[in-house]
Amino acid sequence: MSTLNLKALPGVCFLTAMTLVTAMGDQIVLKDGDRVTGSIVKKDGQTVTILSKNFGAVTLKWDDIQTVKTDQPLNVVLAGDQTVKANIQTQDGRVAVEAPGGPRVVEPGGIVALRNDAEQRAYERFRHPGLLDLWTVNGSLSLAGTKGNAKTLVITTPLNFARVSSTSRTTAYFNSIRSSATINGVNAQTANAIRGGWGYSRNLTSRLFLNGFNDYEYDKFQSLDLRVVLGGGAGFHAWKGKNGTLDLVGGGAWNREKFDPAPKAAFTRNSAEAYWGDDLAYKLSARTSLVQSFRMFNNLSTTGQYRMNFDVGATTALTKWLTWNVSVSDRYLSNPVPGRLANDLLYTTGLGFTFAR
């Protein structure tokens, strides 16, 4: 007759407990018979992300899932933007939502989204951000120069701020260039321009939005002491894909320009304008992103005159915060001060930084 080894009992209990713990977790069975066990992170559209015990984060298609059963309650979004905290389990091809207020059974397509608590907090922060939340800052300070027979120095400081939530977008920018050259003992400035401003847009529907903006500009070699533009209008989200967005905008603006074309007397021009253009953001690769903006301002006070603004930039992430930036900023004025060119181009490249909160 065999006897129970009491010394081995703790080890047996430990192994049994570990087996039970391992068996716990959210369970997903695919239509091809594969099984994934872990913790469901989210369902976004037709994509389900589960943190697997053996394979890390795994992405699955919702339509490829045969059955699903959760071990811990998730934030379940149902049709009509109703969110409940509940476990879910597939029953006869439908999904049982075991909510505290009473269970219900819905079709698989009735599950709009799933989020664990961390994803839900991030979602709520995105929908109702604080004043300092969701800001992304990109910028750089670039220096270039020579020393010898000729001395030159070029300083550029592009900065961009963006705050994007589910209902609004706030942006601000600052760009300047200052350069000088000394040749044969004679020093002279060769460029001195500053551009800056801000913009705000708010969604009315999933496609339509209202926007407003305020721009400032100084350009010594265009004899422009200050240009102030205040405008607003409406826009249309023409395209939104996995790698980018395209918005079309249009509206009206008021433009005040003060010129000082010495030795001639300074003068000021005020004009109403109609504007139209586009904003494009596109992810070229996992590390490189492209942004482009175009605006045409047609003068309504003096017909036939116009301005054009074109900006494009690319950012490549070298590390988490260090980037390589390239930007081009072009301004065209159909009626410049006599003796000045109609077009001014500002381009910069160099190392920069990015910061997100």
Rank of each mutant, 00 (worst) to 15 (best):
L6Y: 07
A8Q: 11
P10S: 06
G11N: 14
A17T: 07
V21R: 10
I28T: 07
V29R: 13
K31F: 06
D32H: 01
D34Q: 10
S39G: 02
I40K: 05
V41W: 01
G45M: 11
V48L: 15
V48Y: 05
V48G: 02
L51T: 09
L51P: 04
S52A: 02
L60N: 06
Q66G: 02
D71K: 05
P73Q: 00
N75H: 10
N75M: 11
V76W: 02
A79F: 03
A79S: 10
A79K: 14
G80F: 08
G80T: 01
Q82G: 13
A86F: 08
N87H: 01
T90E: 14
Q91H: 04
A96P: 03
V97Q: 02
V105N: 14
V105P: 04
V112Q: 14
A113I: 10
R115D: 04
R115L: 12
R115N: 07
Q120W: 08
F126V: 12
L132N: 03
L134A: 04
V137D: 02
N138E: 11
L141R: 00
L143F: 12
T146W: 03
T146D: 14
K147A: 10
N149M: 01
N149E: 11
A150K: 05
V154P: 12
I155L: 09
T156L: 04
T157N: 14
N160C: 05
S166G: 10
S166T: 07
S168W: 07
N175M: 15
S179L: 03
N184V: 07
V186W: 01
Q189W: 15
N192T: 09
I194P: 03
I194V: 13
R195Y: 08
G197I: 12
W198Y: 15
R202L: 01
T205G: 07
S206V: 04
S206H: 11
L208I: 15
F209K: 01
N211L: 05
G212C: 07
F213D: 05
E217Y: 12
D219W: 06
K220T: 15
F221K: 02
F221C: 09
L224F: 00
D225S: 12
V228T: 15
V228S: 14
L230N: 10
L230Y: 13
G233C: 04
A234D: 02
A238Q: 04
K240D: 08
L246Q: 00
L246P: 03
W254D: 11
K258Q: 07
P263E: 14
K264W: 10
A265E: 12
T268M: 08
W276L: 06
Y282R: 10
R287H: 08
S289Q: 07
L290S: 13
V291M: 09
F297G: 08
N298K: 02
L300T: 07
Q305G: 10
Y306G: 03
V312E: 12
V312F: 14
S329A: 08
N335Q: 13
N343S: 00
L345M: 09
T349V: 14
T354M: 13
F355Y: 11
R357I: 11
